[in-house]
Every structure is written in C-alpha cells, then in structure tokens.
Nucleic acid binder design. Structure first.
Lengths: 142, 142
DNA sequence: GTAGGACGTAGAGCGCGGTCTAGCTCAAGC
DNA sequence: GCTTGAGCTAGACCGCGCTCTACGTCCTAC
C-alpha cells in the first residue's frame, strides 16, 4: 500500500502529529482514516491531499469551523458543489482584503523605516518624536 | 486643550476602551497618559498618533512584545534610533512573507473555485473527489 | 439633587488553535 | 525475548490578545 503513518503525514504536511489527531477529532477530514489491526492510523493519499488543502486554507486564516463545514460537504459526496463553491467564494474576499491591509501596513513600515534611516544617515539631525520632552504640543513624526 | 477622552480615542483608533487601558498597563504607550483631577485619562495628540501606528503594526501581526520594545525605545528618547530601525527592518520581511503566502493561498482558492464553477456550469459532469466512494486509490481533484 | 452615562481599578474569563501529559500498546530490530 | 520508539486515547493545559465583570467614582444635564 501507498498508505502513510501519522508521522509521515505530519512530515509532509507540516502539521504536528498532535494537530493531525486534533483535526480528526474535530471532523476536519473527508473520511474516516483507516486503521491497522493494531489500531494505528493509515492515511491514504486522498487524505494527505485534503490535508494539504487544509493547510493552505488555514494559512489564509480560514477558521476551523469553515474547514469543518467544507469537510462535511465533501464527506456527503457529490450533489452539494454549489455550497462548496459558495464557501470558497465567501473566503476569497477576506483573503484579498487581508492582502490589501498588509500592503498598506508594509508601506507605512517602509516609510517609517526610511525616516529612521535618513535620520541616522545625516547623523542625528533630529526631527523625530521625543515624548520625553513635552507632552502637550502636537508636533512631528516617529 | 485638544486632549481626548478614552472614549474619543477608542472611536478614532478603532481600539476598544478596554483595549486602550490594557495597552497602557502593558507598557505599549510612549509616555504616561495625563489625568484630570478626577483621575480620568486625557490623551494628547501624540498618544493618538502613536496608537494609530500601533494599530497598523498589530494589523501586520507584530506581536505585542515587539510593540512594547518599540514603545520603550521611543520612551527613552533620542539616541537609540538604530535599534528602532532594526526592529522595523526585522518586521518587514515577515510582512512580505505573509503577503506572499496569502497570494499563494489566493491562487489555490481561485483555482479550486474555478474547478467547482466549471463543474456546475457543465452540469454535474463529474470528476470531483468523492471520498464516499473508495478510500484506496489516489485519484482526481476537488 | 439626582439620574444616567462615561470612566476608574483589579482581576477573572474567553476564543482560538492547537500542544502536551499520562499511561498504555504496538511493532521493528537486535 | 527485550528494547526502543512510534502510536494510541482522554483530557488538561497553554499563549495570545484582548474582553468582560464587579463595583465604585465622576460629571453633565435636567
């Protein structure tokens, strides 16, 4: 068999062994994981592929609850593709929004860094915030 | 005075009143917030500007610990600009990496959504995963 | 002068997403 | 046969970043 042990799956998905068992308990898998006679999990390639998708969706901050819902739909088998699509479509704008947000943060950070860099380059030429001075006036930058 | 109450600051920073008090306790502010005779906080514009930066940095997942460190440096006054710059410079690649990650997730999601959309468009033309079928073979998509 | 709401402090509690422990079993290699 | 390490279950615990509670005070408006 091409089946994998939990340790092997952990290694290739990047999830911990603990997390894999946790995901299973939480109903995030698309089917019951088969077991050996001794009760050990044997993951099929299908399971691993699904887990790789889970990892991606989690990376993009999809909550476990949504992942669970998606898994349920897949588990139910064909017929609910419209709902699966809706789930993904609902997630996409959140990802886009998050990227936009991060890009804005990135420019702010880059800008502030450049202020400091300039300041250092011209050797303490001042103009930066100094809250140790006066706490009344509303002056300058960083 | 152009000073603001905690409620006003909450409104313009988007932080909750609770969060503002929490930030203060945690040493995330650049200076001691002044108080009225009755013990109420009066935020200076400087504080609000700093908080706006905090909000941005948090949005980009900078941990509170780093924020606290940055605040400490600013509180100490001029002379440590190199370290402040280092802090920001260390954060930037994390933000970039996160954006990259999210962009990858986005294309995966878009791709999967398109698979479902196609499937639905051609009316149940099959080819999607069906874990209810057979758990052995390593077949197709969705 | 009194009602109502915003504010104060201290500290407990929470939601999320895992992570870890205890105590046991299984299985591969020597 | 025995050791060793990987795996098993149930359930407790954790880190982060707030959030909320309890209860008292301040202050503005009527």
């Amino acid at each position: 068999m091409t089946d994998l042990t939990i340790g092997e799956v952990a290694e290739r998905t990047g999830l911990s062994v603990h997390a894999l068992r946790f995901y299973e308990r939480e109903g995030l898998l698309v089917g019951p994981v088969r077991r050996t006679a001794g009760g050990r999990r044997r993951y099929a390639l299908l399971d691993v592929q699904w887990l790789e998708i889970c990892v991606r969706l989690r990376e993009s901050d999809m909550p476990l609850a949504d992942l669970r819902r998606f898994a349920e739909l897949v588990r139910q088998g064909p017929g609910n593709e419209a709902e699966r699509l809706r789930l993904l479509d609902a997630h996409q704008p959140r990802v886009n929004e998050r990227i936009r947000e991060l890009e804005e943060c990135r420019s702010l950070i880059a800008w502030k860094a450049s202020v400091y860099a300039d300041h250092l380059a011209r050797g303490e030429a001042g103009g930066l915030w100094d809250p140790t001075a006066d706490r009344q006036p509303s002056s300058s930058s960083s």
